[in-house]
């Protein structure tokens, strides 16, 4: 009862309220309240995630498992950043309310928390994503083989988009007159037309398919047909 029926009931009611709130103007406020609750719970989930990270790393350090020194680094980085942010250490005073220290701006680059974002988190995440350029190129070089019409279309489009949006387009096809009958063969024009019509058509169909899939999954959850989330305990 408490482990299965009540959660199913909560899921159904919460989902139904939001759907009804959309269609009925009289219940719009309910939807706002429930969304507000969900946002609050999402923030609590971050605390849960932080607590979990703390436990996992402390356990790794205490049992001196392989790589415990890295767990210690993670823990130190976590605790320091959290202290800077939650305690607003060194926050820049709020110009409108300088007498209220806790109203200060902790995200400014002049505050330790903002400094950590600017000089640690931002370069690390940006470089992580930047490094994917090498791996994407390497994977493409290994995997892409123009052996059938589908593969040729994929490869050809990728090349046209890559060339059409760089200076290479002007170098290779810049000589074709813009107003002439063959203007559509210019790489920059070709890239724009592919994006505007062909790629848009594919993307639209994919989005419509995803929307239908999500709507069906949502209904399965709200109606209690999909109960996979209940088996975690």
């Amino acid at each position: 009862m408490l482990k299965r029926t009540v959660p199913l009931f909560i899921t159904g009611i919460a989902g139904a309220i939001l759907i009804v709130a959309y269609f009925s103007p009289a219940t719009t406020n309910w939807g706002e309240v429930v969304t507000d609750w969900m946002n609050t719970l999402a923030a609590v989930a971050f605390i849960l995630g932080g607590g979990n990270l703390l436990f996992v790393n402390l356990e790794k350090i205490s049992s001196k498992r392989p790589g415990w020194a890295y767990a210690l680094v993670t823990l130190l980085a976590f605790v320091l950043t959290l202290a800077f942010g939650v305690l607003k250490i060194g926050a820049v005073p709020n110009a409108q309310f300088p007498a209220t220290p806790w109203a200060g701006d902790y995200e400014s680059v002049r505050a330790p928390f903002g400094w950590v974002y600017e000089y640690v988190l931002s370069p690390l995440t940006a470089t992580m994503f930047a490094m994917l350029a090498f791996y994407v190129a390497s994977a493409a070089f290994r995997a892409f083989r123009a052996k059938n019409i589908e593969a040729i279309l994929l490869l050809g489009t990728a090349f046209v988009i890559l060339l059409g949006r760089t200076a290479a387009a002007a170098i290779l096809t810049g000589w074709i007159p813009v107003d002439g009958p063959f203007a559509f063969l210019r790489l920059d024009t070709l890239a724009v037309n592919i994006m505007q019509y062909v790629s848009t058509a594919g993307t639209r169909a994919i989005m419509m398919g995803i929307a239908l899939g999500i709507a069906a999954t949502s209904l399965r959850l709200i109606l209690g047909i999909d109960r996979s989330y209940l088996v975690s305990d």
Partner: peptide, 28 residues
């Protein structure tokens, strides 16, 4: 590995802090 460990710790604390100040304090 050192940089990766720092990223994990800082990232978790960053999002936790944002959740605390931008959602928990004003909404709860």
């Amino acid at each position: 590995k050192f940089a990766e460990s720092v990223l994990v710790g800082v990232s978790a604390a960053y999002w936790m802090t944002l959740g605390y100040w931008s959602t928990l304090v004003p909404n709860l």
